[in-house]
């Protein structure tokens, strides 16, 4: 715009200058073409990047033969076999038993019929059901704890002059910087000693501590953005500090708290290393379980894909809900848009 009003520059060179810059004028023909190419490339790349996710979605609805077909089958008949196999334990039927079962097909319900088409009989729910429940319990409880404790600590760091604040904050963050195995060795010994190995509470505590680094940093960022004057005004009006925190700061920070909660949930939901090393049966979560899903006689990629897809869908939904906070979340609130 500054260029256009400059009388020293003749018309021809304005256009020349305009073509070089993408910022000064956006109506030139060449600029338009470049823009179209740019947009097309971006859209195509986005779809290219998502092919593995689409493929997972497709495989989840394939029967076993289709899932391992050579060459890969792009068009196929969808089935719920994978999903049903994921949640059930089954026995493989020989021909005679399969025939006998087929004779009384009317007594079977829909998922038993689908299993029968794959030549298997359902014997009960699979351990994946328990594992998924463990995931929900552990991720949920640790998130609630981490956000609650994080809120308090973040408020203190944001509003008061804490001695050695930056050291403490760095220290809190440093938990995130270490490889999980480094942390796990001593904790494993500690847990076996106190009977916390393979318990829900053990994993919940560890996830809480790990998520605290995220929640403290993120929430401190959100609280720094709430003007102190709000609380000061409330306290002049007779609120105590606690009341001001509860009735002024918390409602103001609610979007930040929501975003933090979800980030914390995603971490606990996706976590693999601690769960692998500190649980074995009772408290094991879904991520270490999915790679151990083995079919009866060969990899059941349909089942694995169904498990993976079910596990990832919540995260995808949440990614969309969180999109304006993603940058903050992945940099621990250090960088804001």
């Amino acid at each position: 715009m500054a260029v256009v009003t400059n009388p020293q520059v003749d018309k021809g060179s304005i256009e020349k200058g305009v073509n070089y810059s993408t910022r000064v004028d956006k109506v030139g023909g060449r600029v338009q073409t470049v823009r179209t190419i740019r947009i097309t490339a971006a859209v195509m790349l986005a779809f290219l990047l998502l092919i593995p996710v689409f493929w997972m979605g497709a495989t989840a609805f394939k029967v076993r033969a289709d899932a391992i077909a050579t060459p890969p089958k792009i068009v196929f008949k969808p089935t719920l076999e994978g999903l049903i196999f994921l949640f059930t334990d089954r026995s493989v039927l020989n021909q005679a038993r399969s025939k006998r079962l087929k004779a009384r097909i009317n007594e079977l319900n829909w998922y038993e019929r689908i299993a029968l088409e794959g030549g298997q009989q359902i014997t009960g729910p699979s351990e994946y059901v328990t594992r998924l429940r463990n995931s929900v319990i552990i991720a949920g409880s640790s998130t609630i704890l981490a956000v609650a404790l994080g809120l308090l600590a973040a408020y203190a760091f944001s509003r008061f002059k804490v001695k050695g604040e930056s050291d403490l904050l760095f220290f809190i963050l440093s938990t995130r910087m270490l490889p999980p195995v480094v942390v796990t060795i001593p904790i494993f010994i500690m847990y076996t000693k106190f009977g916390l190995h393979d318990t829900h509470i053990g994993l919940i505590l560890l996830y809480t501590v790990f998520n605290l680094s995220l929640t403290v940093w993120l929430l401190k960022g959100f609280m720094d953005e709430i003007p102190r004057e709000y609380e000061d005004a409330a306290m002049v009006d007779g609120y105590t500090r606690m009341q001001a925190f509860r009735k002024v700061v918390l409602p103001q920070a609610i979007t930040g708290i929501a975003a933090t909660t979800v980030f914390s949930l995603i971490f606990a939901w996706n976590e693999y290393a601690f769960a692998l090393m500190l649980t074995s049966e009772k408290a094991r979560t879904a991520p270490p379980t999915i790679p151990t899903i083995m079919g009866r006689g060969g990899m059941e990629w349909g089942t694995i894909a169904a498990g993976s897809l079910g596990f990832l869908i919540p995260v995808v939904i949440v990614t969309f809900a969180l999109r304006q906070y993603l940058l903050r979340g992945v940099t621990f609130g250090a960088i804001r848009q």
Binding site: V53, I68, Y272, F320
Partner: peptide, 28 residues
């Protein structure tokens, strides 16, 4: 488009890595 591109980084690495095994399979 930006959000769609950001999806992979939010997913669980172990689950994603395991499924990539089937993607890298030389025959299927």
């Amino acid at each position: 488009i930006t959000t769609l591109i950001l999806i992979p980084m939010m997913l669980s690495p172990v689950v994603v890595g395991f499924f990539w095994k089937s993607i890298f399979n030389p025959s299927s």
